[in-house]
């Protein structure tokens, strides 16, 4: 899990997608509600609705009538509101607390296998399209001139982000998912001078934060998501402090 969050997090930082990540997380509540309602389970419901959300967003964005953040603001909160309604009026039993803040104890063995497979697919997809992704990130017109269709690449990235958000939801929780994506990447930004380097460092920071955060949460009986985010935030501040000191010298 931590392996992929560093990788995807870099793209989120590069392309300023953090608000998008936030929005997918918002819509996941609706996914969970619908998943239970039609009996396909929370995980499938979340992936399904989040993907739908991503496609809807890409499609509406094509028209360029509204700026992306306005569009996302509308869509995300619409999904969140409907999600809350669905959950409430059907008396669906969802542990809202675990959903918002993450609870590692709710993760089952099948979930873990699901995560392995999801992560493996996502990493393969990113690495095999690495240079296309980079070029589209830099400039869509330049990418077009090399025969890349930015729309496909954006769909790919959206799908991967959706999978990652849906998968980490149980551990991190809805509220902190974006933090887990962007903080390791933002920490790495200062320490490197190539995109590959940034991915590697972000991944290492991500792994360390997850492992150490979960260790803390188990040892001291803290919620897992916030522990992970606190660890990575501390790393972020430390690296920036060292950065500032190094600059002044």
């Amino acid at each position: 899990m931590a392996l992929i969050s560093g990788l995807v997090g870099c793209f989120v930082v590069w392309r300023r997608l953090s608000y998008y990540g936030e929005s997918i997380a918002h819509s996941s509540l609706l996914g969970a509600g619908i998943g239970i309602l039609i009996g396909i389970g929370i995980n499938f419901g979340v992936v399904f609705i989040c993907l739908l959300f991503g496609i809807l967003f890409l499609w509406l964005q094509q028209s360029k009538a509204l700026s992306s953040d306005t569009l996302l603001g509308v869509l995300a909160h619409f999904a969140l509101a409907v999600g809350i309604i669905v959950i409430s009026f059907n008396k669906i039993k969802i542990d809202l607390h675990a959903f918002l803040f993450g609870d590692i104890l709710t993760v089952s063995i099948t979930d873990i296998w699901g995560m392995y497979i999801g992560v493996l697919i996502a990493i393969t997809l990113i690495l095999s399209n690495w240079s296309s992704l980079l070029l589209v990130t830099l400039d869509e017109d330049l990418a077009k001139s090399e025969g890349i269709n930015p729309l496909y690449v954006n769909i790919l990235l959206t799908t991967i982000m959706t999978i990652v958000v849906a998968l980490s939801l149980q551990i991190i929780g809805l509220l902190l998912i974006t933090a887990m994506l962007i903080i390791p990447a933002a920490t790495a930004r200062r320490l490197v001078n190539s995109p590959e380097g940034m991915v590697i460092v972000a991944t290492l920071i991500g792994i360390f934060s997850v492992v150490f955060g979960i260790y803390l949460s188990v040892e001291m009986d803290l919620p897992s998501g916030p522990s992970i985010v606190v660890v990575s935030s501390i790393l972020f501040f430390v690296s920036h402090m060292f950065g500032l000191i190094a600059k002044n010298e």
């Binding site: 590069w14 990130t137 830099l138 490197v192 190539s194 380097g197």
Partner: peptide, 10 residues
């Protein structure tokens, strides 16, 4: 080309 400052690249 608005060079994005968020991406480190030589």
């Amino acid at each position: 080309l608005d060079v994005i400052k968020t991406i480190p690249m030589k």
